[in-house]
Design a protein around this nucleic acid. Sequence first.
DNA 1: AAATTCCGCGTTGTATACAATCTTGGTCTT
DNA 2: AAGACCAAGATTGTATACAACGCGGAATTT
Lengths: 221, 221
Amino acid sequence: MSEAQTLAEKVFSELATAIVRGELAPGEKLSEQALVSRYGGSRAPIREAIQKLEARNLVVRVPHAGARVVSLSFEELRDIYEVRLELESMACRLAAERMSDAEVADLEALLQEHARSIEADQGLSYYQKSGNLDFHYRIIEGSKNSRLHQMLCGDLYHIIRMYRYRTSTSTERPLQALKEHQRIVEAIKSRDPQLAELLMRRHIQASLTNLETRLAHEARH
Amino acid sequence: MSEAQTLAEKVFSELATAIVRGELAPGEKLSEQALVSRYGGSRAPIREAIQKLEARNLVVRVPHAGARVVSLSFEELRDIYEVRLELESMACRLAAERMSDAEVADLEALLQEHARSIEADQGLSYYQKSGNLDFHYRIIEGSKNSRLHQMLCGDLYHIIRMYRYRTSTSTERPLQALKEHQRIVEAIKSRDPQLAELLMRRHIQASLTNLETRLAHEARH
DNA sequence: AAATTCCGCGTTGTATACAATCTTGGTCTT
DNA sequence: AAGACCAAGATTGTATACAACGCGGAATTT
């Protein structure tokens, strides 16, 4: 991702992606000694990396007991989605007010790109992975609210992606999602904040119920 | 505040309150050496404390250059308020749905307490300080959303309180605020989520415009 | 046999020492 | 005189060493 200027940042970055990808299971203990022999360096930068992970809510640390990969309960994950739903709807409303015409045009171009990918039936998995994220990132950036951007992209999304890996890869409805994306952009283009917010809310709500049923199904086993 | 189980936590706690109270000015540099001679201990726990401050967005750290108390621009502070406005309105809506009858009764009792304090004209300053916060905290807790609670109380409120200290102490309209609080509780009591959210949104919007005019005034000097 | 206490080991928290980087002051050049 | 370059000092990043705390198993007691 971003080039690390320090060893601690490098270790943090690697651990973060490892956690998000599920290579480190939720609840798994992060022994400082083990990390030293795995990533090199001494305990000082490793501890710093762990603290950075804690800051992003990817690990939980208890004094004198060590750090563990965060393990969210059903309720906690639902809470996160609930907040994300609200914040991203807000971002979409603000984007409809504040995005420049050029940015809106770029966003339209992005969706046309996605449409071609799906039509060719080749970039289907691509669309599910980075394509979907690209769209949402642009909306968030379009809100022109730095703190909102930080909260959504910096904190919530890592957690969400982490649990996406566990429960199959995102939605299996790329065509439906694309249509919803297109309607959202239409609302932004016509500078209708309320409609844009409403459409985004419904869009995310769909994936939320998707997740809930999936988790409920998983809980039975 | 919370009893510190480790030296790093203790230093963090003291530094945090010092920053919030304005004893450490925004932009001021936090030299590790200086903090060691001020708070004792070695650099290890001091560094850990600084990292915890960074995690809460109270300081900004750049590699090889040290840490400074966060100094927010006008736009950044407005961004934070914008997010708070949305999240706390959301909390109020959820509280109207999820607070127990007992909790609502407690909240009513709290407001009656506040009313007496104001009527006696003695606890006026009290109401502005902790009273106002107590009310908002209870609403947030009433949302029963742990992540929402964490974001509002853990991250945003420290920053907001920090800048309240700089610009005179909160609103000079305790009576008006109390009335608004009472109406909010009424909406919660009658289990009207939409109305509760609307009233909270207006309530915070008032303090937001309050802050904006104050900052605009300050910018002239 | 079950519960409890205590001791030993491993882990984390803290202190000190060394290396790498940035900053500051001065000198030199243009 | 203004700006760039360079070296010394200070500061941060990293490594190693020591201290404090928690966990787990064995021995003891009821």
